[in-house]
């Protein structure tokens, strides 16, 4: 069966949803402000005769109708990086600031990591972790190509992440962009739909709970944890958030994203979720002509040591 059909009850226009999922995605690049401002990139595209279209909700994104950005000067100089539009959303939600201590738990191949580094003005400490050594080499390649110097790359299981290599014991912010069943990327890679199984959804949701839990534990009270996936499956989204709301000192916070989104859901398959789940964002392909996505923002509310209180205590 096509796994997308199980989500039809969640969308406003079933036909538009399925039709959008069936269309290939345009090639999109993000400009890398560590190397060049969007205006300079635009001038270089013009000089080089490269067709591009701006993305109306983000001045650093360009759609390239002619496809792959791999063979032009702006790419060679690390001014641009191929990155799907929705993939920039968790970085926007995280809103990392120069000088902060930031964790990216599942960082490879580094599109979101390098976006966060640029938001930090390449200052502060950005710990980019991944458990897959092969994918880490792609991350290192991308980080160096884009001129990132504030990234520390670690190869750990994020569920047991150790801060021993660092002279601090908590992060200001963490991005938890977990491995998932990836139906939202079907416009790029339709194979994800053929390989989909419910067993895999449940197994991977268990891993996500562990990774998100550890990220909350290593973030300071008042700090921000952003959770994101590219799946529509509530088992991997709202159910994972429900788990940490019940077990860790954190709360879902309200935040805006610059495109059309739908609220997280409070009911699925006989299960009820916390009403605050509506503060999360679901992104469906037919609303903005993008991939599918899920993004939530949490605030850590109490010291990680006691683990008891879930209300009140906030910023330092």
């Amino acid at each position: 069966m096509n796994p997308l059909e199980r989500y039809l009850p969640l969308v406003d226009d079933e036909d538009a949803f399925l039709a959008a999922c069936d269309r290939p995605l345009p090639s999109v690049v993000r400009t890398n402000p560590i190397a060049a401002a969007p205006e300079r990139v635009r001038r270089a595209f013009d000089e080089e005769g490269i067709d591009y279209e701006p993305v109306d909700w983000h001045d650093g994104l360009f759609r390239l109708p002619a496809g792959s950005p791999g063979t032009n000067w702006p790419y060679v100089h690390g001014w641009i990086h191929g990155q799907e539009e929705v993939s920039t959303l968790p970085g926007l939600a995280l809103d990392a600031q120069p000088g902060e201590r930031v964790l990216d738990t599942c960082a490879a191949p580094g599109s979101k990591t390098t976006q966060i580094a640029a938001d930090m003005d390449d200052r502060g400490t950005l710990v980019a972790n991944d458990n897959n050594l092969g994918r880490l080499s792609a991350l290192r390649h991308n980080a160096e190509r884009l001129g990132v110097t504030n990234v520390a790359v670690t190869n750990q299981d994020a569920r047991n992440l150790s801060l021993r290599p660092f002279p601090f014991d908590a992060f200001d912010r963490a991005l938890v962009d977990v491995p998932c069943s990836c139906e939202g990327t079907c416009r790029k890679n339709p194979d994800v739909l053929d390989e989909w199984t419910l067993d895999h959804v449940h197994a991977i949701a268990g891993v996500s709970k562990g990774i998100l839990t550890r990220a909350i534990q290593t973030t300071r009270p008042g700090g921000v944890v952003v959770f994101s996936t590219c799946t529509f499956a509530p088992e991997e989204n709202e159910a994972v958030l429900q788990h940490v709301l019940e077990s860790e000192p954190c709360e879902l916070t309200t935040f805006d994203l610059p495109l059309r989104t739908e609220p997280g859901i409070t009911e699925w398959d006989g299960e009820t979720f916390n009403d605050a789940m509506k503060r999360a964002h679901r992104i469906y392909p037919h609303h903005n002509d993008t991939g599918g996505f899920f993004c939530a923002k949490l605030r850590v509310t109490a010291a990680q040591q006691d683990g008891s209180g879930t209300d009140g205590v906030t910023a330092r």
Binding site: R101, D122, R123, G124, T125, L126, L133, L136, R140, A143, E144, G147, V148, T149, N150, V151, A152, V153, T154, N155, R164, P165, F166, P167, F168
Partner: peptide, 18 residues
């Protein structure tokens, strides 16, 4: 070259860039 915090010495995959 690295522009962040780390212990010295530090055994991880990468710090900044070569």
């Amino acid at each position: 070259i690295y522009r962040g915090e780390a212990t010295d010495p530090c055994r991880i995959e990468a710090l900044g860039m070569a």
